[in-house]
Nucleic acid binder design. Sequence first.
DNA 1: AACCATGTGAAACATGTGTTTCGAAGAAAT
DNA 2: ATTTCTTCGAAACACATGTTTCACATGGTT
Lengths: 291, 291
Amino acid sequence: MGVQTDLREKLISDYAKLSPQMQKAARYILDHPNDVALRSMRALARAANVPPSTVTRLMSAIGVETWRDFRDHYQDRLLDNPASYAQRARETQRTDNDSNRDAHLLESICRTEIDNISAAFSPDFVPHMITACEAIEDARQVFIVGSGAAYPAAFQFAYAYRLFCDNGVLVDGRSGAFGDELRGIGRRDILIAVGAKPYIRDTVRAVEYARSQHCPVIAVTDSDVSPIAVDARTTLVARDTSQSFFQSFTAALSVMQALVALLVARGGPKALQRIAAAEEQLAVFDTYLED
Amino acid sequence: MGVQTDLREKLISDYAKLSPQMQKAARYILDHPNDVALRSMRALARAANVPPSTVTRLMSAIGVETWRDFRDHYQDRLLDNPASYAQRARETQRTDNDSNRDAHLLESICRTEIDNISAAFSPDFVPHMITACEAIEDARQVFIVGSGAAYPAAFQFAYAYRLFCDNGVLVDGRSGAFGDELRGIGRRDILIAVGAKPYIRDTVRAVEYARSQHCPVIAVTDSDVSPIAVDARTTLVARDTSQSFFQSFTAALSVMQALVALLVARGGPKALQRIAAAEEQLAVFDTYLED
DNA sequence: AACCATGTGAAACATGTGTTTCGAAGAAAT
DNA sequence: ATTTCTTCGAAACACATGTTTCACATGGTT
């Protein structure tokens, strides 16, 4: 029985009693354990935005003699836990009892999610993404529609977009019917529609309505031939392959986030300025917890 | 420039052409690859019973600029940052002219997202996930709270959970204040709280209230020491590292989806049956588009 | 023999490392 | 207001690190 329990636990349990700066260091260590094993103390301190002395002090605060002891602990941990996917998969398959079936499922989910995202961000994807950006930048109003499981992705875009542009409209059917929210949509607007099979009727109808009003559509969907993608200005394909019964909208969410990031990057300092203003406003409303 | 294939191969193939002392160093490196990642060059030289200059010479003999490059390579291997990562990153960095900046950004976003998901599904994560499932299965009511950028993840879980269980409550502050929705929460319930830095006050307050009512909490957050995770029954850490200005809740969404998948898997055929019923109901309401 | 070529390790070097010290700044208590 | 007490970061420190330099040795070739 080791005298020292796991240093990570110690760090967590003592966290509340540490001084603010030490908390910053402790938090960085908890969030980036590999940095402890692989990088120098000073480098870690820099990354955590803390002077080196704080880290030394943290060591004695949690009862560790020297940084070296601490680092050795993390190095040992790194050597014991091979992070390799292949190795993990092999191990879980080797002992296929009941408790490991869950682990195997999670492993499989993880791989699928990564595959989906990788596929979404293929090189062919870039020009479509840029086209979408241009369309959004030129639009008078930006409507976003996504129902059911696709709603999170639509919401995410609308939420982030609102922070630096005020011409976004999330069409979620909450303020009355879909028709109300889409009123006045036209050729100078853009509709971003998110959805995968099984396609939700409301979403498809919104797309059809927009098309009838000559409003171009950006489709974030699971296939180039999805009903959402018919006659779309651009189609961003985000696979929803899932290990479970449900579709996975992880890739779609990721694409939406990437779209926002790209818009901000193209918007330059002006966009950043607006974001700063929005953040300040949120701070005024006491939305966030102070550190 | 030719991308370096695995340095280990290079070391083996050139072994015969090296001078005796360099062979001694090379042999030690081949036998103790982890020493390269974790120990210093001088320490490795001592262990190999060779002066430091020999190791430096070995570096240039195998065409590596500096010991640091060599060590980084071995560190990446230890972390199992698949070689394809580094390779893809270098390729995109290579063509870093102005026209490709967007492509580079997207590439970088993709890599970060994958990192986040990988980190979230680490092996240590499995037991926490199982604990969370058990807590949910035993709970009378399942409250889900997540504001701002975390809302998509919370919504996603609530939406999917509703398809096979009817004791889920999404606390979104829409039907009145947070307090109303949390009314009656107690020790037999469970609260799933999603949030990352900067922490939204309402979410933290919901967690504190739940705790004050002795209701256990499952925290899906960005750190073990997040205010949301204080005294939590289980903490599922989902990093939100992002290339853009915004946090990325992709990993959190993925974790929530995995939680649902696991619950269904553990629920067995009964859960599937309920899902089928729910789907049928949706079909009755003409929600989906028929093929 | 003299000569080059090559292999080698000790020492020098600038920089980086982990730790300690010290004084300032602020809060808490008297 | 004065005194503790804590927290903190800059600077100093002694040592380690990766690299380069240089002198010396060895062995082979003229």
